[in-house]
Design a protein around this nucleic acid. Structure first.
Length: 774
DNA sequence: TTAGGCTTGG
């Protein structure tokens, strides 16, 4: 957390980046350029830490006052309100006391809404997100026995120095950045840990081997290919065989990044929290650039199936179609990458019931679908894979085999073996959907699928096996999202969004870490577009009770514009009167019926698609609408509500002059404000740099391609949304399987009960996929 | 503690 503390005021400046310049508080205006500027002042007032309960979580207000020489003329505007948000507010609350001197930078300035009252300063300083920094010099040293939490925060934040790989000293502990030139996936050791080995290089020209020991395979650095960038913290330098090597020791940590120059700088890690700054962003970008131009010796062993030669060892990026366990030491994986080899592939005969997943049979697949035999230590990984996953198989061996042909001749086919052991980095792993290689693979698969679709002679004309959305990626294909806005914005990190001031629109790439509510019916709300009120939808029991009170008075009531019919209920306890409007649009078979005295269940029973039913009651001889949030209109299974705030009319009036009857025209004709159904969901987004809560509200219909109103009565619509949510956030909650989503986010401020709150909404974004676009 | 790249095999 960027709250740095120091006991010595003289030391303060050593923490400040050299590029920062001081800006005196009394010169600060709402138009001041704050980038690269810092302010310094004594904390004269520190407010309580407020828990906001939204994505900002915490808020803390403080007042600082700058130290102005007594003889100075500047006595106005030397104090200013400081508003801190989120984790920074929490840290500030722990680490800072009244009387401390603070240096703040990375802030924004906004007009002070309280200037009229407090006369402090026309502006407020806002500190939010990763850009914002607080450096505090405590007025007095913290007393012995302070709480553990304070002690933790009061430790000066680590400043990371990275040692070039040619400057490693035996016995030291270092932080390094490097480009991976070789790696072995984690394998079990004779001890308690898994071991993975890496070979790193950097612009210093040195190449260093690195050994990672870690008990949990998942926590090993996530390297997918040579060229990936890694940052290692707290690793030990050892000499082995006359060369420097790096070995993990207590407290080590690693972040890895895709090595492609064009891909977003998103760290891969399982760590819940890690330090990641602008400097890291710059380091990764520079290493990528250097590797792309200066690291010519880096050979990419990845070969598409179309270019594989007999006897070749190669890395394959592919999709798993099906798998079968052949014996305890061998598992068969049927894979494809959308390319064809000139040489046919050996097909391993398997009983259909032994095969997990679907795989089309036929000659057309003989040089397209590769049967990979996975041996020994790799079987365990292979068994955990699911059809649809994207894989990288390292050091796969293309073995030429002679098989008898149809005309008794002998022909050569290729069989594929992933032999046992870990030499040459042999192994296999599932690739995350965010990988640029997966995007490339998906394009190849799609293009191949389209070609086959156009080929009448293809024996693989049953395209369901790869176009079925749940199959093509099991988890990611159908539910990746696409932005439908026209903004041309650079993608930014969630940390950037969090540190930005509203209003703003951002393009991000993120995964759904969690979402709420989990039950669909809890997502549905009523929304008044006029007064923006959001209301819960009453459940049937509540509606029964509300109707029960309203239908007690069933005294006859007549309306001149309706034909009225009265009938007893089945138990003769009440009378139900149907007032059928005599005014109806020309050419309309539908009827508008005002139903007096019916219970909720009775009106549901009476309701059909042909009629519009409006529950009414008698009040002093006049027909009035039922009150307290019950549907004012029933049509078949659909129920419509009026807004309590905006619908002032109580008396039922004659509906005439309407050309077409629908819920909207009828509510307007009756003088009621129709409430819309909306789907409200809160997503917790995560891109590795930060998590951010974002609402799906106004654009939820287009996001899901389902109207919220449809959800109220359509089982099919409900299942569709559930399926989409299961894909966006797989129920098994594996990070690896969560798809990455392209999103357009709108950041805005709302004023609620005098408190300014920052909200974020997912806008202009749609889920995509064959099933959704139908 | 462990491993310390470097195959040719079903």
């Amino acid at each position: 957390m960027p709250v740095y503390t120091d006991q010595d005021p003289l030391n303060m400046d050593k923490w400040l980046p050299k590029t920062l310049q001081s800006i005196p508080l009394h010169t600060l205006t709402a138009k001041s350029e704050c980038a690269g500027k810092y302010v310094k002042g004594k904390v004269v007032c520190k407010g309580p830490l407020l828990n906001m309960g939204d994505h900002v979580k915490y808020l803390l207000k403080s007042v600082i006052q700058e130290d102005v020489p007594k003889q100075s003329q500047a006595s106005n505007n030397i104090s200013i309100n400081v508003v801190l948000f989120g984790g920074l507010a929490k840290d500030f609350s722990h680490a800072v006391n009244q009387g401390d001197v603070v240096v703040l930078w990375g802030f924004t300035v906004s007009p002070s809404p309280t200037f009229g009252k407090d006369k402090l300063h026309p502006c407020n300083l806002n500190l939010n997100g990763a850009e914002a920094h607080v450096h505090v010099c405590a007025a007095t040293a913290p007393a012995a026995g302070t709480s553990g939490a304070s002690a933790t925060v009061l430790k000066p934040a680590a400043k990371y120095k990275y040692v070039p790989l040619n400057a490693l000293k035996h016995g030291s502990q270092v932080n390094v950045y490097g480009v991976v030139t070789f790696f072995k996936l984690p394998f079990p050791t004779k001890g308690t840990d898994y071991c993975s080995t890496l070979k790193l290089t950097d612009p210093s020209g040195a190449t260093v081997c690195c050994t990672i020991f870690c008990e949990n395979q998942e926590n090993h650095p996530k390297i997918f290919k040579a060229g990936d960038v890694i940052r290692l913290h707290r690793v030990k330098v050892q000499t082995f065989g006359g060369a420097m090597t790096l070995v993990t020791c207590w407290g080590w940590s690693a972040l890895t990044f895709d090595g492609a120059v064009s891909s977003p700088v998103v760290p891969r890690t399982n760590n819940k929290s890690f330090h990641f700054s602008e400097e890291d962003q710059r380091m990764v970008t520079e290493l990528r650039e250097w590797a792309a131009h200066g690291l010519t010796a880096l050979r990419d062993p990845t070969v598409p199936l179309s270019a594989v030669l007999p006897k070749q060892y190669f890395d394959l990026t592919c999709q798993l179609l099906a798998k079968a366990r052949l014996d305890s030491a061998c598992t068969l994986l049927k894979v494809w990458d959308g390319t064809r080899n000139s040489c046919p592939f050996l097909t391993i005969p398997v009983e259909p019931e032994a095969l997990e997943g679907d795989c089309p049979a036929g000659r057309d697949g003989q040089n397209l679908i590769a049967d990979v035999l996975v041996y020994d230590n790799h079987v365990e990984v292979a068994q955990a894979l699911k059809p649809g996953m994207f894989l990288c198989i390292y050091n796969l061996h293309a073995v030429p085999q002679a098989v008898p042909g149809e005309d008794c001749s002998v022909r050569e086919v290729l069989s594929f073996h992933l032999h046992g052991g870990a030499s040459y980095g042999r192994g296999l792993c599932a690739l995350p959907s965010s990988s640029p290689d997966v995007a490339k693979l998906q394009r190849a698969l799609q293009s191949c699928a389209e070609q086959m679709e156009g080929d009448m002679n293809s024996s693989l004309d049953d395209l369901s096996w790869f176009t079925a959305s749940q199959f093509i990626d099991g988890v990611t294909w159908e539910c990746q999202t696409v932005r439908k806005c026209t903004h041309t914005l650079q993608k930014v990190s969630l940390a950037h969004v969090k540190s930005s001031s509203p209003p703003g629109v951002f393009h991000v790439e993120a995964q759904v870490k969690s979402y709420q509510p989990k039950r669909l019916y809890q997502c549905l709300k009523l929304f008044c577009s006029q007064c923006k009120t959001i209301e819960e939808i009453p459940d049937p029991a509540t509606l029964r009770a509300r109707f029960g009170q309203a239908v007690r008075d069933t005294r006859p009531c007549r309306a001149a514009w309706a034909d009225s019919v009265t009938t007893d209920t089945q138990d003769h306890s009440r009378q139900i009167t149907l007032h059928v409007s005599s005014k109806s649009p020309a050419h309309s078979d539908s009827k508008l019926i005002f139903v007096q005295g019916a219970s909720f269940d009775e009106i549901c029973h009476l309701s059909s698609d042909e009629e519009f039913l409006i529950p009414v009651k008698s009040s002093r001889g006049k027909l009035t609408f039922l009150d307290s949030m019950v549907p004012f209109l029933f049509r078949g299974k659909r129920q419509f509500y009026g807004c309590r705030q905006c619908s002032v009319r109580r008396l039922v009036k004659c509906v005439e002059g309407i050309e077409v009857w629908n819920e909207r025209s009828i509510s307007e004709g009756l003088g009621l404000q129709l409430m819309e159904y909306v789907l409200v969901m809160k997503f917790e987004l995560d891109d590795g740099t930060a998590t951010l809560e974002a609402l799906l509200l106004e654009d939820s219909d287009s996001f899901f391609h389902v109207s919220a109103e449809e959800l109220t009565h359509s089982q099919e619509a409900q299942e569709k949304i559930q399926k989409i949510m299961d894909s966006l956030h797989p129920p098994d909650n594996s990070t690896l399987q969560r798809p990455w989503l392209e999103l357009c986010l709108s950041l805005y401020a709302v004023d609620e009960n005098g408190q300014r709150e920052v909200h974020c909404q997912i806008v202009n974004t749609q889920t995509r996929g064959s099933a959704v676009e139908q």
